[in-house]
């Protein structure tokens, strides 16, 4: 990239450079301020009993164990639904449908719009469809399915990008060797697209863990330990909201929960980054060997 940091006279230039640097530094500062605040106020709350105890006195005291379990339950349901659906959709759009065909374009556009739907609207929809019409009530199931609808566009896009990154020579070689489309997809294309698929799953997890508004009227906000998927349960993010807004004196535990949530999100991000790099490395080495054997 071109380097603009060279000295150049003129007030206009100085003002402009000042503006750009301020914007850049501001982003770092904001991140530091918020992350620092959460760590600073939250760290004192976190210990083993915080993670393994049930909340008492509406969450002012005690821990977050049932809430962690509910969060994992909802997350599992969300991924269990969204992963197969997003894989199938991405495979159809990228490997089977005619490029720029009417049906593919329609599906693509509807996913663009779905990605922009506000989370509170997903909450209304989830309440009307899953909780009321399908009679799932306020339950982990309603919440998880609602989140699956939200995470779907992100995960499909990411898988599509993964498939796009697989060179066409893979497809042609497979076809010339007489491999069926099915084995080409499952044995060659999906493994090669794994970094994209993984990124999608991580983005989906991030979106699901961060979500609150869509869960208020689908999974509900019961603090008790859920006994089945048909039970209501609150996630970490709902717990933060409830403690901060509805429970006087709940702030310190809200911060503790926020720190746990942030650590979860960062840990998942970092693991996924490493995993993707590892897989990507293998993929590149693989193709390198292939090119060498060709020459």
């Amino acid at each position: 990239m071109f380097d603009f940091s060279s000295n150049h006279a003129g007030t206009n230039h100085r003002l402009w450079t000042f503006f750009v640097w301020t914007s850049g530094i501001l982003v770092f500062a904001i991140f530091g301020l918020i992350a620092g605040d959460v760590v600073w106020r939250g760290i004192g709350q976190i210990n083993l009993t915080f993670l393994t105890d049930s909340p008492t006195r509406s969450g002012r005291a005690g821990g977050i164990f049932p809430i962690l379990i509910s969060t994992l339950g909802i997350l599992g349901l969300c991924l269990g639904t969204a992963i197969p659906l997003s894989l199938a959709t991405a495979i159809y759009l990228h490997e089977f449908s005619r490029k720029n065909g009417a049906s593919a374009r329609l599906i693509d556009r509807s996913l663009d719009v779905l990605a922009g739907v506000p989370s509170i609207v997903f909450g209304l929809f989830g309440n009307a469809f899953f909780a009321v019409t399908l009679e799932l009530g306020f339950s982990l199931l309603s919440g998880g399915l609602t989140l699956a609808c939200m995470a779907l566009p992100l995960m499909i896009r990411s898988t599509q990008q993964g498939l796009r990154a697989v060179p066409d020579s893979f497809r042609l070689t497979a076809a010339s060797l007489g491999l069926s489309r099915t084995s080409t997809i499952f044995r060659i294309l999906l493994p090669a697209a794994l970094p994209g698929i993984l990124t999608g799953i991580i983005l989906g997890i991030g979106r699901a863990l961060a979500e609150t508004a869509a869960l208020l009227f689908t999974s509900g906000y019961v603090t008790r330990m859920p006994e089945s998927l048909f039970d209501s349960g609150r996630t970490l993010s709902i717990h933060i909201y409830d403690l901060a807004m509805n429970v006087p004196g709940g702030e310190s535990n809200a911060y503790g929960t926020a720190l746990v949530l942030m650590i979860l999100i960062v840990a998942i991000n970092v693991t996924a980054g490493l995993l993707a790099r590892m897989l990507l490395g293998r993929h590149i080495r693989l193709s390198f060997h292939q090119t060498r054997s060709l020459s």
Binding site: A210, A213, I240, Y241, L261
Partner: peptide, 14 residues
């Protein structure tokens, strides 16, 4: 990206 991944309730809390 990390800044974008912070949940909205955490922004609200802050």
């Amino acid at each position: 990206e990390l800044l974008g991944g912070i949940p909205s309730v955490v922004y609200g809390l802050w």
